[in-house]
Simulated assay, not measured.
Amino acid sequence: MAWFKVDDKLHDHRKTRKVRRSHPTKKRDVAPFGIWGLAGSWCGSNDTDGFIPLEVLEEWDDDAEGLAGRLVAAGLWVDDEVDGERGYRFHEYAERNPVSGEDPADYGRRGNHVRWHEARGVIDPKCPFCSPRIGGDHRGESGAESSRPGPTRPDPTAAAGDRAAAAAVDGPVDNHHGNVAIEILADKLRQHTLLRTLRTDKLTEDWETRIVALIERHGDQRLVDAALAGLRRDDPPRLIQAFVGAWEAMPAAGKRVAAVPAPTCTEPGHTGTTRHCVQCASERKAAR
């Protein structure tokens, strides 16, 4: 038995909004999530790796097939069949939940691998789940096959296309060649409400190089603080590179911004500067 996990952003996901609008007569309806939650609990209790038979769903609701169809249409479930029994499978269940027979510690490490490596095409030699694809499978350094079941393994090409299409409508897209440092920085910026949809999909290699250099110089938290300090609430930037100019103007840690001396006043005999000259001020006052 294992816990079934629910993402804390589910309520605002584009697929959730699609389900909400999918009722044939009601403007808003989230009834499918009742059966979705019960199904997740059932899968965790029965170690089915995200598969649930239609017969089980029909024990919970007279319109089980209709509710399931709305979840399939939104991309939260897929039609499936196991041992001749028709049912449904949670989309990418194994990427978000422990699979049967998996050690809890391995689940945590695999979750990090999926998020930071697999989804971005990164190969980390220190990660036991990372390796080049062999025949469509992920194999660790030992050469053993991953415990993740085939039906839930995503197609990375299709997933990238889905993310790009989704971003054009309602959210951020990450397209920075798998740079984990930039992703961490972007995630921290998106914690601010006005930057929730901050995008990184327009980054060129030059922009990436500059941002990585800034992260190495200042640390991501200083960059976040600087970005929020100068944020315009009426017109927040939509692309992360909009902050680069201000970040590059930041002094190095421990250094103060150098003062720019004002030039000396050019009037003969004056001892002040062009910014503040006592003699010029006296002459202007006397001329009034």
Rank of each mutant, 00 (worst) to 15 (best):
A68W: 02
P32Y: 04
D29A: 11
E55Q: 13
G66L: 15
D62G: 15
A74E: 11
W60N: 04
R70Q: 13
V30N: 15
A68R: 04
R28E: 14
D29P: 05
D61N: 13
A74M: 11
D63T: 06
E58P: 01
D63M: 03
I52E: 03
G37S: 13
P32A: 08
R28K: 10
A31I: 10
W60E: 09
G69K: 04
G44W: 00
E59N: 14
D62Y: 11
G40C: 08
D49M: 09
L38K: 12
G50T: 07
G44K: 01
C43D: 04
G66Q: 13
G44M: 02
S41C: 09
G44R: 00
P32C: 05
G50V: 06
A68Q: 04
A31V: 12
D62A: 15
G75W: 12
L57F: 00
A64W: 01
E59S: 15
G69A: 07
D61K: 09
G69T: 02
G44H: 03
I35L: 14
G44C: 08
G66S: 15
G69N: 10
I35E: 01
F33L: 11
A74R: 10
I52F: 12
A64R: 05
I35M: 06
W60P: 02
G50C: 09
G37L: 12
T48L: 00
G34Y: 14
A74Q: 11
L57S: 03
R70C: 09
P32H: 07
G50H: 07
V56K: 12
A64L: 02
D29C: 14
A64M: 05
A74N: 11
F33R: 10
G37H: 09
T48V: 03
A39P: 05
V56G: 06
L54C: 12
R70K: 13
A64K: 02
G66C: 12
P32G: 04
F51R: 00
G40P: 04
D47H: 03
S45I: 15
G34W: 14
E59I: 08
E59R: 14
G50Q: 08
K27Y: 07
D47C: 04
A68F: 00
I35W: 01
G75E: 08
R70D: 08
G40A: 10
V56T: 15
I52V: 13
S45R: 15
L57H: 00
E55H: 02
T48F: 02
E59L: 15
D63F: 03
W36K: 04
R70I: 10
V72W: 09
G40T: 07
G66A: 13
G34T: 13
V72P: 03
K27F: 04
W42L: 02
A31N: 14
G34H: 12
D63Q: 09
W42P: 00
G40K: 05
S41I: 10
G37W: 04
E55D: 13
G69M: 00
D63K: 08
S45Y: 12
E59C: 12
A73M: 03
E58L: 05
W36V: 10
P53W: 10
E65I: 11
G34E: 09
R70W: 07
W42E: 01
G37E: 08
E55K: 09
V30T: 14
F33T: 06
A73W: 03
G44A: 07
E65P: 06
C43S: 12
F51M: 01
G37D: 08
I35Q: 01
